Simulated assay, not measured.
Amino acid sequence: MTTTTFDSLSAGDTIDGPRFAVTRESIRLFCDASLDYNPLHLDDEYMKGSFGKTQFGGIIMHGMNNFGLISRMITDWAYPAGAIHRRLETRWVKPVKPGDLIQPSGMIKAKQSTTKSRWVLIDVVVKNQHGEKVATGEAMVEFPMDLFCQ
């Protein structure tokens, strides 16, 4: 595997993250890790109800679990190049349920160089096994300055 460098990147380049099989156990583990025991994530009986205009029909995964998968993808991609994951903004688009298989991906949308830093903006998305978007967002990664750039 070749290490990514800032100079080798172009708009349109893609990043693929790991697939994640969502289970009741993975949701429960995230409850324990995050200390978020909201019945949305634990109680099917509670989730039979209606939340405003939304009906989920069963427990759903924490939206922050999508955030974690995107962060892992970005870090796994950036770290070998010495780059730092600086920012991530996400929006939950569709609920994720036990039995779903989700995967984050990203696409470079812009590069920027200044005298002090080099940045890459990445459009990120998490899709389920049906190709439906469950989360979208934008990440920013800072690449180290090469010695010849200083």
Results as ranks from 00 to 15, higher is better:
L121F: 06
A21Q: 13
F56C: 11
V22D: 09
M107G: 03
Y37H: 14
P144Q: 01
I27M: 14
E45V: 15
L35R: 15
V120Q: 01
L69S: 07
T5Q: 04
D76E: 14
G106C: 00
V22T: 15
Y37M: 15
S8N: 09
L147M: 03
K94Q: 02
L35F: 11
N128P: 09
L121E: 07
F56Y: 14
Y37F: 08
T5V: 12
G57H: 12
H85Q: 15
S8M: 07
T114W: 09
K94N: 06
S105I: 00
Q55T: 13
K109N: 04
F67W: 02
N38C: 11
I59A: 08
Q150R: 15
G131L: 08
P144V: 01
V120K: 09
Q103F: 03
K53N: 15
T2H: 05
M73Q: 03
A83I: 06
E142S: 13
M1E: 14
R118I: 06
R87C: 09
Y37T: 11
R28C: 10
D100F: 10
D123I: 00
P104Y: 03
S113K: 12
K48Y: 07
T3I: 07
K111M: 00
P80K: 12
T54D: 13
Q55R: 13
V93W: 01
R87M: 10
T75L: 12
Y46W: 15
T4Q: 00
L121V: 04
G52R: 06
D146P: 05
P39C: 14
L29C: 15
R28T: 15
M1V: 12
Y79P: 07
Q55S: 15
N66V: 09
M107F: 04
C149Y: 01
S10T: 11
T75I: 13
W92M: 09
V126T: 05
T23Y: 11
H130T: 01
D123M: 01
G106Y: 04
G106I: 07
K133V: 05
T2C: 07
V126H: 00
K109H: 00
A139Y: 01
G82K: 08
A81W: 00
F6G: 07
P95C: 05
M64V: 09
P98C: 00
S117I: 12
E25S: 15
E89C: 04
T3S: 14
Q55Y: 04
V126I: 09
D100Q: 14
L9F: 08
